[in-house]
Amino acid sequence: MARTVTTQRKVIVTAIAWTIAIAIFFPILWTFLTSFKTEADAIATPPKFLFFDWTTENYTTVQGRSNYFLHFWNSVIISVGSTVAALIIAIPAAWSMAFVPGKRTKDILMWMLSTKMMPAVGVLVPIYLLFRDTGLLDTRIGLVIVLTLMNLPIVVWMLYTYFKEIPGEILEAARMDGANLTREIIYVLTPMAVPGIASTLLLNIILAWNEAFWTLNLTASKSAPLTQFIASYSSPEGLFYAKLSAASMMAIAPIIVLGWFSQKQLVRGLTFGAVK
C-alpha cells in the first residue's frame, strides 16, 4: 500500500524542486533569451529578462558570417556516420555474444570495455601524426573513423545488454520450426531487437555530437563540427553575447531534444548495464 501524502507537503516539495530545477537549467534559458536580444540589450544593466525587443537577427548574422550550416552538416555526418558504422560492426558481435556465448565471451566483453578506459591523450600524438601523413587531418572521414572506434565498446555493450533480454527460447522455437540462421535473424530477432538498436543509435549520436577532444584536435576549418565552430568564438567574438548565444543555441538545441527522449537509455549505456 502506498503511503498517503498530504497536499501541503507535496506543494512544498514541488516549490523546492522547481526552484532548484530552474536554477540548474538557468544557463541554458539565459542563453536562449540572450540569443534574441540586440548586443546592447545583452549587456544591459540591470539585465533584461523578458522585456526587450525580440529579434532574430543574431541567427542570420551567425549563419552569414561563419557558415553555420557547413559545421552543422559536418556534425550530422560525423555523429550519424560514426554511429551507423559502429552499429554495423557491433550488431553481429553483440548478437553472437548474447546468443552463442562461448567460454571467452565474458573476457572479450571486459577487454572491449578496457579499451574505453584508455585516455584519448595517451594516443593523441600517434593519431595526429598518422592523420597528418595520410592526409586525414581536417577531413570528415578521419573523424568518423576515430569516433567509430572510440564508441564501439559502448555500442557493443549496450546492444549486448539489450539482446541478452530477448528470450533464447523464442529463437529455439523458430529453429525447430525450420527457420535457418538468416531467417531467424530477419524475422525473429530483428523485430525484437529494434528498440534496443534505436536507443543505442540515439545515445551514440549524442555522445559523438558532443565529443570535444578529437574534434578539436583533428579538425581546423572545412570539416570542423559544431564543437570546433563554437570554440572559435572563444575570443574576442565571445564578448558579443547575443551572437555567441545564437551560435550556442543552434549547436545544442537539436541534441537536447534528442537527449530528452533518451534519458532512460542514457543510464544503461553510460554505466555499461551496471545500473538499470
Partner: peptide
C-alpha cells in the same frame, strides 16, 4: 507536481557540448 518537467530541466546540462557550456559560463 510536474515531476516529468523537473526531471527534463535537471537533465538538460548533460547534453550541452563542452565548448558551449564553457563559453557561456565564461562570458555570460
Amino acid at each position: 507536481f510536474g515531476q516529468g518537467i523537473v526531471r527534463v530541466l535537471v537533465i538538460a546540462p548533460f547534453f550541452v557540448m563542452p565548448t558551449v557550456s564553457a563559453l557561456v559560463w565564461k562570458n555570460m
